[in-house]
């Protein structure tokens, strides 16, 4: 393809009137890192106006966290680009060795979670941009919005464990006005960001509590205290995800709903536990006393993701990293 044939620029210009946030995110990304042109183009082609609408939402959240400062927004874009490059480099190493680079949770904490600046200015911004431009995260969010949110009751407590930036909890509490929330994370820096995000969603302090806690151990929560539990992008960061799932089940009340995700054969800046297949994750979930209600398997590869057969074929390929997300309820 020669210069001028890539129609991304015209696609973005056409979208700019109705979706200024999305158009801005794409423009900044491909200006800062031109090698992401095809990623942006692929997302637009695959998900169309839904992609643009969601990108607008994410950009509004990121802008809020950046206090509307354009330079900080660009720094957040750079964080995402660095995150992707580090992921790709580590993934290549994983394919060579079959091991993730971190073997020890405390070492990982020292490298990332204990570094407040890295959590707030690199990691969480990267994750927010991943919701826009990375198909696995984008589909996680899609599953959350379409397959989880409608199943949350309008009363009781929603508990997000490993809340990070807090978008899932903020959206859930905003959609269900009579609920209360608990945001749990191991990182105080992440809890600060989540607190701001909940503020963006106009969730007052009377409706949400922020608690530093560690899912490797027993959480400081009562049995069955939550009608909904969100635990996304957490299990692969833990040394013993089976134990964590038992703990999630303990705090989930009867008739409740859980949103759970796992990264399969997918290295990142902070992954520890290698899930080899999504069946392994399902087995753990069921062993913890949960029943799978709905799920989605998202291979991270070039291919037609609208074609279910191709999706399945890619998901079975041991060289392809896969995102898995599901809704589960107590057995």
């Amino acid at each position: 393809m020669k210069h001028g044939e890539d129609n991304l620029t015209s696609m973005v210009a056409a979208a700019a009137t109705d979706h200024p946030g999305a158009a801005r995110a794409i423009d900044r990304l491909i200006t800062i890192a031109p090698m992401f042109r095809s990623a942006a183009r692929d997302m637009l082609r695959a998900y169309g106006t839904t992609f643009l609408r969601r990108a607008d939402d994410r950009v509004a959240e990121i802008d809020f966290l950046c206090d509307g400062d354009a330079e900080r927004f660009d720094e957040a874009v750079r964080a995402y680009v660095r995150f992707c490059m580090e992921f790709a480099r580590k993934q290549a190493e994983f394919l060579r060795t079959g091991r993730y680079s971190f073997q020890d949770f405390d070492e990982m904490c020292a490298e990332l979670y204990d570094d407040n600046d890295a959590v707030q200015n690199f990691y969480l911004f990267a994750l927010l941009f991943s919701f826009i431009f990375s198909p696995n995260y984008y589909e996680f969010y899609d599953f959350f919005e379409t397959e989880f949110l409608p199943h949350v009751h309008d009363t009781g407590c929603v508990c997000e464990i490993g809340c990070g930036h807090g978008v899932y909890l903020g959206k859930t509490l905003a959609a269900h006005h009579s609920t209360t929330g608990v945001a749990i994370d191991i990182s105080p820096a992440a809890l600060e960001v989540a607190q701001r995000m909940l503020g963006y969603y106009q969730i007052g302090s009377q409706r949400v509590e922020f608690a530093q806690d560690d899912l490797r151990h027993r959480l400081r929560r009562d049995d069955g205290c939550a009608q909904a539990v969100i635990c996304c992008e957490v299990l692969e960061h833990l040394p013993d995800p089976q134990r964590a799932l038992h703990e999630l089940r303990r705090i989930l009340g009867e008739g409740g709903t859980a949103l759970l995700s796992a990264a399969i054969r997918m290295e990142s800046v902070d992954h520890l536990y290698v899930f080899r297949t999504h069946d392994e994750v399902i087995e753990m979930i069921e062993k913890a006393g949960l029943r799978l209600e709905a799920s989605r398997v998202i291979p991270l590869a070039k291919g037609n993701m609208q074609d279910e057969e191709e999706r399945r074929r890619l998901a079975e390929d041991p060289r392809v990293p896969v995102g898995f997300i599901c809704r589960a309820s107590p057995k």
Binding site: H3, D6, M35, F36, R37, S38, M85, A88, R89, A92
Partner: peptide, 29 residues
């Protein structure tokens, strides 16, 4: 990447890694 279709982020990394190996150097992220 604006003029070469296959120059995406993954190939960007592949180029960098191949250059590191060929010339015996290290590139930071």
């Amino acid at each position: 990447p604006e003029t070469i279709e296959h120059w995406d982020s993954l190939n960007h990394l592949n180029i960098c890694v191949a250059v590191e190996q060929e010339f015996g150097i290290t590139l930071t992220t």
